[in-house]
């Protein structure tokens, strides 16, 4: 269900913890599984985690599937719902809002013709509002697919970024 590369990455996570504490690796393992789904999925449904993937990862790490499911649903960056090829998360918490975060989110929504929480019809973009990303000085801040942080996202910077992601 996961590539040999992803499994090797999970092995590296497992090696970080004492041998009897393999459960600690579940957060990294689920992230690795999600990244592979994101990169290889062709539809929004194929890009998120689901019960089968979670069960596979849990078995690989050696914990009950329900324990992995708990983790996947508790932490909000694990995509449990269908997601576009590019998931755009804009921070709209207070410090960012003071520096244009809310405007940035609305501008992206207008450009893509979707509201917050929605995915474009072609399955390309999903727009989300995020909570504090720990980068308020760079506001407006945008996360692309959880891991790529884009800073100082003025309208011009957003235009440029969206064009790049086409």
């Amino acid at each position: 269900m996961l590539s040999a590369q992803s499994l090797a990455k999970i092995d590296r996570e497992l090696a970080k913890y004492p041998a009897d504490q393999f459960r600690s690796a579940i957060m990294g393992a689920l992230r690795i599984a999600l990244v592979e789904r994101h990169e290889t999925g062709n539809t929004p449904e194929e890009r998120c985690l689901n019960a089968d993937v979670i069960e596979f990862v849990a078995n690989y790490v050696g914990i009950p599937p329900v324990a992995a499911y708990e983790v996947a649903t508790f932490y909000n960056m694990y995509d449990m719902k269908p997601v576009g090829k590019y998931k755009l998360t804009v921070c709209t918490n207070l410090p960012c809002a003071l520096q244009g975060g809310v405007n940035a989110a609305h501008y992206i929504g207008e450009k893509l013709g979707i509201g917050i929480g929605e995915t474009t019809a072609d399955g390309k973009f999903t727009l989300l509002e995020g909570e504090c990303m720990g980068a308020c000085g760079d506001a407006p801040v945008l996360l692309v697919n959880n891991h790529k942080m884009c800073s100082f996202m003025t309208r011009e910077a957003i235009d440029k970024k969206l064009a790049e992601l086409e």
């Binding site: 459960r23 600690s24 957060m27 932490y75």
Partner: peptide
Amino acid sequence: LFAHHGYGAYICGEETALLESLEGKKG
């Protein structure tokens, strides 16, 4: 020394929630 990442939960900044999370549980 090793690095462990969170994945979107403010509560894990609370030190005992952080420990739970580091143990691979809900924070």
